[in-house]
Amino acid sequence: MAKTILFVEDSTSVRTVMKSTLTREGYEVIVACDGQDALTKLDGTKIHLIISDVNMPNMDGLTFVKTAKQMPAYKFTPIIMLTTETQEAKMNEGKAAGVKAWIVKPFQPAQLLAAVSQLIQA
């Protein structure tokens, strides 16, 4: 059975390409355009991994992650942050929120796939 990934990203280009890349690798991908949209996708569906941008309209990635981590169904879901944010404080905030990996854009799709594979198998 294919593993399900929730991909939260406000950039249409990144969202399009990464959805295609992950689907090609055999993952089932649910996309959301911001944190608020992503919360509506967390309706009890089994999610094996969450990949989220940090700076997004309506609700930023870190707020979304903190909210998701409070939901019992997604308390232990591994999370990867995919962002242009390089500030140490933000990274520490993410780490404290339970983020497992922090990828700074620009990134190679292969890098993300490697991290996804590592965290989903873990």
Binding site: V54, N55, T83, T84, E85, T86, Q87, K90, M91, K100, A101, W102, I103, V104, K105, P106, F107, Q108, Q111, A114, A115
Partner: peptide, 25 residues
């Protein structure tokens, strides 16, 4: 959100980093 923005804000001439970065676990 980016170091380049801060450097530009402080009047430094910066080049945008186009190389893929490593992952922090």
């Amino acid at each position: 959100t980016m170091e380049e923005q801060l450097a530009t804000h402080e009047g430094e001439k910066t080049e945008i980093n186009t190389n893929p970065t490593n992952i922090t676990f």
